[in-house]
Amino acid sequence: MSLSIAGITHVGCRRSSNQDSVGWYQSSDGQRLLGVIADGMGGYQGGEIASRIAVDTLLTVLKPAVERGVADDAIADRVQAALNLANERIEQARCDRPELDKMGTTVVLAWLQRDRAWVAHIGDSRCYLLRGERLSQQTRDDTVAQNMVDDGSITREEVPRVPFRNVLTRALGVSRDAGASYSELTLAPGDRLILCSDGLSGAVADSNWPALLAGEEALEGQAQRLIDASLENQAGDNVSVMMIQFR
């Protein structure tokens, strides 16, 4: 069994600063892996700070656990504790400067151990499972637009036109509650996980991704292909992609 990971973040075509942050850690014996993507918001300075704090805190807190390995049923608790700490830190950073008042961030992370993956997320950064040619989204966006789709008010195709499509219903650092959504997957050899911020899903329809990734062996190359595709489509937002391969 082997795990590999590659992550890239790009400022995109329209923005002048990158408010996404990415980070990962693989244990020394290569058996366990943690990948995180955070997409910050709240004035274009606050976004950078918030997402950076989230990624740094998560990696720092979870690194030892990833290194040694943790019982399966303890993973969610560990992750939640780390998220709570990140939440506190963002709130603290906010107190220091009034112009960071609205800052917050999304988070999506994947913890891989043996042949299982635990995915946690808050916000609209996503995790997909790519099995062969089939791509399936593993996370449900915490957005108003998603709610509207869920309750049948609009269809998925109408989402890009909704005025409040980017408004989040949950985010890290904006309230006391940092509760995330969790899911567990069992992986088959050859499976890939794709973590991304909404810059990617907003610029390139996910139905196109399997075709884009076909033929590229290296993980980093695959991530780069997705980034290139979003730049070609004039990505209006920061784009972050993380590819995780399970063999």
Binding site: M41, K102, G104, P163, F164, N166, V167, L168, V174
Partner: peptide, 16 residues
């Protein structure tokens, strides 16, 4: 409005 991420959106949709 697409750029606002948090619930404090500009203008409430009460009249929308």
């Amino acid at each position: 409005d697409a750029h606002t991420r948090t619930g404090s959106v500009m203008g409430s949709p009460l009249y929308m």
